[in-house]
Amino acid sequence: MTLHLYDRPGVYLVLAAFLLAAGIYGLIRRRTLIGMLISGELIFSAAALNFMALNRFMTPDPTVGQIFVLFIMGLAAAEIAITLSIIIAVYRNYRSIHSKELSELNG
């Protein structure tokens, strides 16, 4: 009797759904900008895992999904660079990166 869980697309899709849900939970609950950034990275990873699972099991050409996930990684790296520089600039101005205290534009 063999299990072969790793040959079923369902496992990967459920895992990607879990990563998405964990990221959204973190986005709602976190009160600092860096914590929200980490949750956003989890959501990126969920999307990439979904692409890879569908690429492995459903598409005829397995190259396409890999290239797409490579582009996702490049965009995530660019996003991290920009976001961290914004966070550092905010910290210099406000001496805090807690999202409750950044309320100057609050109506």
Partner: peptide, 23 residues
């Protein structure tokens, strides 16, 4: 290479330059 080597290390730099612990 990208996530563990670059993204996480960059976030750790960001952590060192600010005070990000949950209030």
């Amino acid at each position: 290479l990208i996530y563990v080597g670059a993204v996480c290390v960059t976030i750790i730099f960001g952590v060192m330059l600010s005070e990000p612990d949950e209030p």
